[in-house]
């Protein structure tokens, strides 16, 4: 009941933003597709769609940011029966719904474009096949990147607000936040450069059979799809890192953020 109430509340807070964003996506696509069709080179719509896809890595953190911003004034949301984990989970779930809705629409637009362009025989490399595997991997990659940015965002947001009560830290908290992020990244990069760690990370991979695992292209635009296996350890460790950041953010929210 409490958690459902939080999710409904967060959805109501973001609802207008979601509908506006979906409308903007359709308008942007229509503009891009119209331009491509006018040029009689419909394949031009694909780089445009790729930009839209990559932009989706920001949809999740931006949505979570809007939802957190709604609570910042007065931080009254902390006066409730839900703990930090539930409060942040609700924001994360609603942000994910927004991301998935937006990705779904973009996928539909991509599928429509592929069908439309297929008629122009611009997509010979597809060999009549629909790129399901690539689509799933690409969507997965976007969702993964979005979670990376969002869990870091939640953690840094909580850390930022937990420093608000100390006048000394308050003045330099932006610098501290940036330092925490870059120091952590530097440490991770350095550790993964060790040969033992590198070998461990590459020790488990899953081969993905892709019907398009070769070089292909559409007139001037060409790209290569590698059939390298999917490394499992980095993926699992990253997911563990996301969980760690999330729990750290919830802990800070419960114990250190004051109103």
């Amino acid at each position: 009941m409490v958690f459902k109430g939080l999710v409904i509340k967060d959805f109501l807070l973001i609802r207008m933003y979601l509908f506006t964003w979906l409308a903007v996506l359709i308008v942007l696509y229509t503009a891009g597709a119209s331009f491509a069709a006018y040029q009689k080179q419909f394949y031009l719509v694909f780089p445009f769609l790729l930009v839209l896809y990559v932009g989706h890595t920001l949809v999740l953190p931006v949505t979570a940011g809007i939802l957190l911003k709604a609570e910042e004034k007065g931080q009254y949301w902390l006066h409730g029966t839900a703990d930090g984990k539930r409060l942040l989970s609700s924001k994360l779930i609603v942000s994910t719904i927004v991301l998935l809705a937006s990705l779904l629409l973009t996928n539909v637009l991509m599928a429509f474009s592929l069908m439309a362009a297929n008629g122009e025989s611009q997509l010979a490399f597809l060999e009549g096949q629909f790129p399901w595997v690539e689509g799933v991997l690409f969507n997965g990659g976007i969702i993964f990147s979005a979670f990376y940015l969002t869990t870091w965002g939640l953690f840094l947001w909580s850390l930022f607000h937990s420093m608000a009560q100390s006048p000394a830290l308050r003045k330099i908290r932006w610098i501290l936040i940036i330092a925490v992020y870059f120091i952590t990244q530097t440490v991770i990069v350095r550790v993964t450069e060790w040969s033992a760690v590198k070998a461990f990370l590459q020790s488990w991979s899953i081969q993905i059979e892709s019907p398009l695992s070769s070089t292909g292209g559409m007139n001037e635009i060409s790209f290569t799809m590698d059939s390298n296996g999917l490394l499992v350890w980095p993926l699992l460790l990253s997911c563990a890192g996301f969980c760690l950041l999330f729990f750290a953010a919830a802990w800070l929210l419960d114990r250190k953020v004051e109103v």
């Binding site: 109501l12 807070l13 004034k73 007065g74 931080q75 009254y76 949301w77 006066h79």
Partner: peptide, 12 residues
């Protein structure tokens, strides 16, 4: 607890 700010969501 009745707070001076942050209790109400403006678009509700």
């Amino acid at each position: 607890f009745l707070s001076t700010e942050g209790m109400l969501y403006q678009n509700f």
